[in-house]
Design a protein around this nucleic acid. Structure first.
Length: 462
DNA sequence: AGATGAAGGACCC
DNA sequence: GGCCAGGGTCCTTCACGG
């Protein structure tokens, strides 16, 4: 039991960068270097000091799993499994009958976007291992990926993996400028296209293909060429009857990490199911480390396992937050095929946060808060937003994060107000040694809208 | 009893 | 040389005024 516990704690400490596929360097070698480099880092030390918290979280998860297993045992007693499976199968039939294969949905994803934009500005970087970002990598060039460097990885660890790694600072204005150029091109193929971040988008090209009497494959080929001709940036794409995640696109169309390609999923239930079957459950959007372990505990590792364990999932439906139907849809590869642009009124919050070298001095912390208030005021006025709740976020030098919020009856827009409320929230907490401060405003009001109440729309992915 | 606010987390790009 | 970001969304749990 004790060793099991520590194994799971290790897994937690290993962080998100483990378990991904490697390339030129052997993965076990990469893991070794990462583990070794992590040991010396402040982050790791802080987490060790912070073991209490880590252990607590880990224990809670373990408890949740034990509870789940117990509930399963309980539920499985005196129950006719095949009968339950039959019930689930009825749902499957129903879901299957509702499957809509009439739309052609494309997921486009710029290849190593930030890195390639930087490359355009500095051709010297060509064929060199480089990465964008400082503290953590935002993107790694393909050359750098061969050494195991990935986005989200701490830069000092990346340096260990690849000592020649060149680090380039983020140039967000560059990326967003390039992004809108690319999105404009996508819009020609679907005016209702939905951007998903700066470097990817969902499109419904059904109309376009019909009007231009062109096959989806050719259409996407043409679109990718249009982007390349205009920007010299390459884009990968996945074509399916409904939305498919970037992970899937990468997985299928790219033989692992080969960019600049496209792939069309066979528009046929059986083929889609075959494809989903061996896919790790972790690739499903919304399933992160925690849910992965929860599912793993009842024997669900792949999307196909959802069906193997359908009786148990059905019995435990409530306890587990993930919902039987949506899991079945996942397993069947059924997702939404509605592509619509984001609505302004869907915006829920706006915030700014900054990391810095640890500060304990009160006045210096106020100074940071002031800078953040100014940035936030700028973002809010540019976006045309006011808000009534202000949330202060701070991270200790031990990496523990806290938030403190205050709602007001007025609409906040000005930096003076932001600063005042920020201070008000921060002062009772002092003294503190902080490495991050942030402010976020919620309960927004759209200043560009007269004062109508927007119609809410739901944008479920699956 | 159900809303609502606050705090903490999981997840995503 | 740099030493684990910063923009979000959504969900759960707890407490409490009217």
């Amino acid at each position: 039991m004790a060793s099991q516990e520590s194994a799971s704690l290790l897994k937690r400490l290993a962080g998100p960068s483990s378990g991904k596929a490697g390339l030129a360097k052997d993965q076990t070698e990469i893991n070794r270097i990462i583990a070794e480099a992590s040991k010396g880092s402040k982050f790791y030390e802080a987490r060790l000091l912070n073991k209490h918290n880590e252990k607590r979280k880990d224990k809670e998860l373990t408890e949740r799993i034990n509870k789940l297993l117990k509930a399963r045992e309980e539920a499985l007693r005196n129950v006719d499994i095949s009968k339950i499976e039959l019930n689930v199968d009825r749902i499957v039939v129903e879901l299957e009958s509702q499957r809509d294969l009439s739309q052609t949905i494309v997921h486009v994803d710029m290849d190593a976007f930030y890195a390639n934009v930087e490359l355009l500005h500095n051709p010297d970087l060509k064929d060199k291992p480089f990465a964008v970002g400082y503290g953590v990598l935002t993107t790694a060039s393909y050359e750098a990926r061969k050494y195991g460097c990935r986005s989200g990885m701490a830069s000092h660890i990346a340096k260990k993996l690849c000592p020649e790694l060149i680090l380039v600072p983020n140039n967000f204005s560059r990326y967003s400028e390039m992004s809108s150029r690319i999105m404009d091109i996508f819009s020609r193929y679907d005016p209702n296209m939905c951007p998903a971040g700066a470097d990817e988008a969902y499109l419904n090209i059904t109309e376009y293909c019909a009007q231009h009497d062109i096959s989806p494959d050719d259409c996407v080929q043409e679109m990718r060429k249009a982007v390349f001709d205009d920007t010299k940036l390459t884009v990968s794409a996945g074509i399916a009857p409904n939305k498919v995640t970037r992970d899937l696109v990468k997985l299928i169309c790219s033989d692992r990490n080969k960019p600049n390609g496209q792939f069309r999923l066979e528009f046929e239930s059986k083929a889609i199911f075959e494809f989903m079957k061996d896919l790790s459950i972790r690739k499903v959007p919304g399933i992160g480390r925690v849910s992965e372990r929860l599912l793993d505990s009842i024997g669900v590792k792949t999307c196909g396992d959802i069906f193997v364990q359908r009786a148990v999932i059905s019995l435990l439906d409530k306890q587990f937050g993930l919902g039987l139907r949506s899991l079945l849809q996942t397993g069947l590869g059924i997702a939404s095929n509605v592509v619509a642009p984001h609505q302004r009124e869907e915006r829920k919050s706006i915030g700014v946060e900054r990391t810095f070298h640890t500060i304990s001095d009160k006045e210096k912390l106020f100074e940071k808060l002031k800078e953040i208030s100014e940035e936030l005021e700028k973002d809010m006025s540019e976006g045309g937003w006011a808000g009534s709740t202000v949330t202060l976020k701070y991270k200790l030098d031990t990496y523990q994060v806290f938030t403190r919020a205050k709602s007001s009856t007025r609409w906040i827009t000005k930096k003076e107000d932001l600063l005042a409320i920020g201070k008000e929230l921060l002062v009772p907490e002092l003294p503190l040694s902080l490495r991050l401060i942030g402010l976020r405003v919620t309960s927004l009001k759209d200043l560009r809208l007269s004062d109508s109440v927007g119609i809410k729309r739901v944008g479920a992915f699956w």
